[in-house]
Structure formats: C-alpha cells, structure tokens
Design a protein around this nucleic acid. Structure first.
Length: 774
DNA sequence: CAGTGAGCGAGCTTCCGCTTGACTT
C-alpha cells in the first residue's frame, strides 16, 4: 500500500518524476484525457443548458480501473497534470471518473521536471480551478457543436463522410485562397542586370560580382544600358563599412521544430513528431508538444557550462526568449536536450539527426551574437548614371554561428550570398568581364508546405502543438488538399549579354511553378470552402479562434459563465445551419464541357458521390447517363472535352493472354489491368490509353513472380507461414502476423522457431486487428 | 477493394485536444 498516488499525463514523465520522489510516492499516468463527450446526440444536452454528457474514452477503461484501485488505497491523490486549460480539465475529469474525495485530493503543478520544482509543488497544493475547467468545457462543447452540425450539412449538400471544424476548415481555406492568388497572379517582367568585374593589385587579380539595385522595366531600356556600358569605364565611387550583428533564433517549439526539420532534414510534420516522441521516451529530450520558448534555470546553467567548456566563455550569453505565439499557454519548456553535455543521442539515424538539430538550436540560443562587418561598394559607370553595387560581409566574431544557423523557406534570399570582398580603394578602376541583363518575372506567393501551413496556423492562433500534425493529416485524408505534383511550365525569357564589347541576345527558357510536396486544394476542397464561406463566414473567419479564445479567457477569469457564452454563439449558428439545410442547393461544381461528337449529348464535369467525375447525357434523357471518375491531377475546373472523352474509353481490352482478355481500366486506386479475375496496378510510366498487350502481360507476370516470392517458407502445419511483406519478412499464423527478431534469418526459421516466436509475442499483449482505427 | 453516380432507403460518416501504441496489401 502506497501513501501517495501522483497522476501525470505522460508515462515517460511519470518515470522521471518517480525517481525524484521517495518510495512513499507512486507515480502513474492517465495517458492524456480520460473522458470525452459521448458520440451520440452530439454529447451535449442542448435544451438542458448545454449540459455535457461525458463518458470514459474508449481504450481508457483499463487505465481508469487501475487508477481507481490505486486511488482507493492511497492516503492522498496528487493530480499533477499540466498547468493549462486542458491540463486542468484532465485533473477534474480524473477526480470525477475516479470518484476522488476532495479531502484526500490535491492539485499540484510544476513547470520544470526537477527535484526542487516537484518538492516545491508538493508543498503548495491547491484545489481544482473550476473556472479554468469551465473554459475548457466551453472549448470542447463549441468544437463539438460546430463539427457535428456542419459535417452532416456537408454530407447532405456536398458528399458523404466529409467533415468541417473550427480548425480544419480554416486550414483548408488558407490553401484554397493561396491557390486562387496564384491563379490570379500576373507576373511582372523586368530586366535584372548583373556584372562580373575584376580588379588588380600588385600581386594578383580578384573577381567581384555586382548588381544594379533597380531593374529595367523594358527590354529596350536594358539594351540601351548595356550599349552605354559597352563604351564605359568603371570606377569605385564609394566604399561603406558598417558593423552588423546576427542573433540566434529561440529554442524550438513544436511548430518551429516541424519547420526546421522539414527544411533541413526533409521530414514531414508527422515524422518529426514520431521521431521526437522516441527521443522523449528514451529520456533524451524534454516534452515535444509545447508552445513555449522558455528554458528552465537548470537548462540555462547547463548551457552556460557546456558552451564555456566547449567554445570558451566569450561564446556564452544567457538569454530568455519571450513567446510570441498567439494564445500560447506555456505549460512546458521549449524542446531541448535533457542533458546539454550529451552532444549526440538516438538509436536510429533519424533520431540522431533530429537530436543533433535540437542540440544545436538549444546551444546556439544561449550563445553570443555574431558580429559582422558589412561592406557596400558603389561602382560608377562612366556613360550612364546608374551605379552597380557589390556587397560583402566579413564575420568578425562568429558567436552562435559556430554551431547553428536557421534555414529559411524562401530560396530567393539564398541567392544573395555575400562573400568576402578583396581590399579595395575609392577611385580604383574596375574591369568588366561580362554583364548580363536577364528578364525576370515576379513570383506569385508560394504554395504552403505542411510546415509553413503549421507556422501560419500558429500565427493565427489556430490549433495547438498536439494537433498540428493530425490536422494536416485530416485535411489530406478528407481529400480537401493533396501534396502537389505540379510539373510546372517552361517559360521563355530574354537574356542580353555584354562580353568583350559585344552585345548579344538569347531566348532561353526556365522551369516555373514546379512544385513537389506542396499543398494544393482539390475540387472538393475548393467547393466545400466556397460553400462554408457563403453560409458560415463567421466560423471561416481567420479571427474566429482568436475571438472565442478571448471569451474562454473571460470564462477562466470568472467574468462569463461558460454555457451563457455557448448559448450566445449557438442560437444564431444553429439557425444558419437549419436555414442552409433547407435552402442551399446541392453543391455540384457542375461545368458543361461540350457535346459528345458521337451522340451529341451533353458532357459535364461535376462532383459525384465518390468525388469529381465526368458525365455524358442528362438523367432526364431516355438513355441513361454514363459516368467516369476523374484521374488524379485532373480537376473539374480545368478538364477539357478531349480529356473527358478519353476517360470514357475505359474499360478497354488491350489483348489476350492465356486465352483470356486483358482489360485495362481505371479504378479507385488508379489504372489497372485485369486478367483472370486478378488486378494488377499499372506503373507510373504506363499510360492506360496506349498501353500495349505485351506490356500488360509483362505486368501480369511481374505480379505472379512477386506472388511466388511471397512465400519464404511453408510447413506441414499449414497455419504457419513465413511471408515476404511490405515491411520485410514476417510470420503469418491464423490471420495474425508476427515480427521476426532482428538477428534471425527468415529462411532459416524452423517450424519450432516460428511457434516459439508466436508464443513469446503472445505473452506480451494480445493484439486484435481492428477493422477501423477508432 | 478495383467502373459505383437515380431507384427502397438502413445505418454509417463528423469535431478538437490530451496521450501512446502496435501494426502490416
């Protein structure tokens, strides 16, 4: 029997804390929230003052049973969840779900996981802050009402299984509107002049790059300038030296970690969080879901010590960074290595790389500014009034740059690399090597990446560190947006060159607009956004979250009652829902493409039950309409009549093999060939409209070969097989699959070995495959 | 799971925020 039961949110945290508290304390984890609104009837009794109906979350029953038992035995239960709105609610739900008696329940909070912080917290317990809990209930109920009233509206008016919500719908809106900006963008052409010069001193010559600070609006003007230059001499008009400095970026929050890991390591936000979780669980980093740039006193002193030891005292500068994130709740520290003297950690390559990034960022944040000397050289052109500018930068003291430099999203800036300039003097002559005037086009705003969308959401105060990655997944899962595969276009541009007194011109081309992995809205995403904007402009407003957050704060401060706030919101909102349900037309996004040359019937592109499709004929006509789904990368907005007609050519028989037809068609998972009842997906490079019989046979055979390789080993006991799966070899036994231990060679396994592996894995935990993830 | 899209219409889908796990087309 234990005197004290301490409950925290995360098992990794529980483990650490237990070490600090003596044997009189048992530390357990609730694994996050333990109760949630019921699924049925929205989980809210709307006519009963919006009373929430809570139930133990699925999968949390075991945790609750165990905690209940321990709580009963304990003298005191310490609720030590985070000190923010959600944390307070978790404490309250625990006290409700566990039936804790107030006299033996204490609420404590701590911001650092150190022995002093925790013992201090134990000395200063308090009760549960009911006002803060109310603010959380308001947040929860509002999200539920919005989500569970808007989504069914979409099922009726657009397509089944869609979803809408305070966070996801605004995220989609951002992407949709960015795409509209890009489509509406008219590039502005101008001519940018750059030149390469050389100067001589006694010993050697140096090359210097320079640019004209302003661009020419027309080709004629650029050409005239080059002509003037052809007859010009060049001289240094002025040299200006200015001291400058650079300061390190603050330590990582969830959002900045996701951005930097995307830029420097090409991780998706999901991957970053997964790897960070592993580092957290192995005790290498602090908690990875945080909006704070704060470092604990312990971390600051560790950093100082480490920097002084490794680089010298002059490199250390202790800093605290103010959090700029809107609505930041600061329940945790910034993301940092647990031990700053550990320069490397992690058990996989990805873990080591992410750890390295976190270590460098943290250390750099506690280092001195870099001091620089920036030099600007103005160069006179004898026959023209324009001046060239050459820029140089010398690092006088590297400071934090020794360790780390933050990357940027806009690659344009990277172009402007400033090097070291040679020693120069005012009045010194310069000699032209070559000069170029290139036609440049202004660029439309860039498409969002996963990480830049997270940054934007954070700037708007929408979403929380724990939901950034899931939100990004959701809007892709619902097929509102997809990762782009825009091939871009070839764009011609003019280039003029001046070399050895000769002026020549060239027509060159460049690739523009090509994007990979950027977020692009689908037809469904655009249409749903348009529909929601027309009917629920308030919820789609970028400031909606900020506005309700303010009201949640008022609830937390006791200025408003939570259900009063919800009532004020709900009445007009619900009216809009009802009104739209009755009066809104079904959203089809229909576009008439033209007439079928064969039958003369109309051809449309529109949204169907299963997504975007094309249709021949109207349903009123005697002959039934025919349908075909759009392919990936096709859009209702841009599909042509010819492309639509192409889609109606399937299924087509491309030949025969072993006396059966080879039928090529396009299904839910893309183009495929069907033969003897088996389906084989076409490869990326195969065009289903021109694929040959020979190629189709090749694919069928390839699939058969794979099928044969699937069986690594079979035994007399037919229940057990060693198979080759997507993730390497595994053992299949009665519909369940088992991992093969690392060092074991799959083909050497005997039946006994397999049985042993199955038996041993069975002792861990029984795993039933769920048909659907919750 | 692989060409569906109306018809009869049952029963289903859905939110955000806090956690981790155990898994294979």
């Amino acid at each position: 029997m234990v005197k004290n039961l301490v409950i925290v949110e995360s098992p990794a945290k529980a483990k650490t804390i237990e070490k600090f508290l003596g044997k009189d304390y048992l530390v357990k984890s609730s694994y996050g929230h333990v109760r949630d609104l019921a699924k049925k009837n929205q989980g809210v009794e709307i006519d009963n003052g919006f009373k929430p109906v809570y139930e133990i979350s699925s999968g949390k029953k075991k945790v609750i049973t165990e905690l209940k038992k321990l709580a009963k035995e304990a003298e005191t239960v310490w609720l030590a969840s985070d000190e923010d709105r959600e944390g307070e609610a978790i404490a309250w739900h625990l006290s409700e779900a566990l039936n804790l008696k107030p006299e033996k329940t204490q609420r404590i909070v701590f911001h650092e996981i150190t022995k002093t912080a925790i013992t201090e917290a134990i000395k200063n317990p308090r009760g549960i802050d009911e006002k803060l809990v109310d603010a959380q209930q308001a947040r929860r109920v509002l999200d539920r009402l919005v989500g569970f009233e808007l989504s069914p509206l979409l099922w009726r008016k657009v397509k089944p299984s869609l979803s809408a919500g305070r966070v996801q719908s605004v995220a989609v809106r951002l992407i949709v509107e960015r795409e509209q900006e890009i489509k509406a963008f008219k590039p502005d052409a101008s001519f940018k002049v750059s030149a390469l010069f050389y100067v001589e001193d006694k010993e050697r010559t140096y090359e210097i790059k320079a640019e004209l600070p302003s661009r020419f609006s027309t080709e004629e003007k650029a050409k005239t300038f080059l002509e003037q230059c052809a007859a010009s001499e060049y001289r240094i008009a002025d040299i200006e030296k200015k001291p400058g400095k650079k300061s390190p970026a603050p330590p990582f929050t969830t959002s900045t970690l996701q951005q930097e890991a995307a830029r420097k390591l090409s991780f998706s936000v999901t991957k970053t969080m997964l790897i960070a979780q592993q580092l957290y669980e192995s005790g290498n980093i602090t908690y990875m879901r945080t909006d704070s740039t704060n470092l604990s006193k312990l971390a600051l002193s560790m950093a100082k010590e480490e920097i002084t030891r490794a680089y010298g005292e002059e490199y250390s500068k202790t800093r605290q960074f103010a959090s700029k994130a809107k609505g930041a709740q600061e329940a945790h520290e910034a993301i940092r290595p647990t031990y700053l003297n550990k320069h490397a950690a992690g058990s996989s390559n990805d873990q080591r790389r992410l750890y390295d990034l976190i270590w460098k960022r943290t250390i750099a944040s506690q280092m001195s500014d870099a001091s620089l000397e920036r030099t600007t050289v103005k160069i006179d052109v004898s026959k023209a009034k324009e001046q060239f500018i050459a820029k140089g930068e010398i690092i006088k003291f590297d400071g934090f740059l020794k360790v780390y430099f933050e990357s940027r999203d806009d690659e344009e800036d990277a172009e402007e690399q400033k090097g070291v300039l040679p020693p120069l003097q005012k009045g010194q002559p310069m000699f032209l090597i070559e000069m170029e005037a290139l036609q440049r086009f202004s660029a439309p705003p860039p498409r969002y990446t996963e990480a830049s969308l997270v940054k934007k959401l954070e700037d708007l105060g929408i979403g929380r560190p724990s939901t950034y990655a899931p939100t990004i997944s959701t809007i892709q899962k619902r097929q509102y947006v997809e990762k782009g595969i825009d091939e871009g276009k070839e764009r011609p541009f003019k280039a003029w060159k001046l070399k050895q007194g000769e002026i020549s011109s060239q027509n060159r081309t460049e690739k523009t607009g090509a994007t990979k992995g950027k977020l692009i809205p689908t037809d469904i995403g655009s249409l749903v956004t348009q529909f929601l904007l027309e009917n629920f402009d308030n919820i789609m407003d970028y400031n909606f979250t900020a506005k309700v957050e303010k009201e949640f704060d008022e609830i937390a401060n006791g200025l408003t009652e939570w259900n009063r706030m919800i009532k004020t919101f709900y009445k007009p909102f619900h009216e809009r829902v009802e009104n739209s349900m009755e009066t809104s037309e079904k959203v089809k996004g229909e576009r008439l493409l033209g007439k079928d040359p064969k039958s003369g019937r109309n051809i449309y592109a529109r949204i169907g039950r299963y997504g975007p499709m094309v249709q021949i004929g109207d349903k009123e006509e005697e002959e039934k309409p025919r349908f075909a789904s759009l392919r990936k990368n096709q859009s209702i907005e841009t599909i042509t009549l010819e492309e639509a007609l192409e889609l109606f050519k399937f299924p087509r028989t491309v030949g025969t093999y072993e006396e059966e037809d080879l039928i090529v068609s396009i299904g839910r998972f893309g183009p495929y060939v069907k033969h003897k009842g088996k389906f084989v997906s076409l490869k990326k490079e195969d065009d289903p409209s021109v694929i040959t019989e020979q190629r189709a046979i090749e694919l069928v055979e390839e699939k058969r070969e794979k099928e044969r390789n699937k069986y690594i080993k079979t035994f007399d006991d037919e229940d057990i097989q060693v198979l080759n799966g997507r993730w390497g070899p595994y053992i299949a036994h009665k519909k369940k699959n088992y991992k093969i231990p690392k060092e074991t060679e799959a083909k050497d396994l005997s039946l006994e070995d397999c049985k042993k592996i199955i038996k041993e894995s069975g002792t861990k935990k029984k795993t039933t495959r769920k048909k659907k993830s919750k």
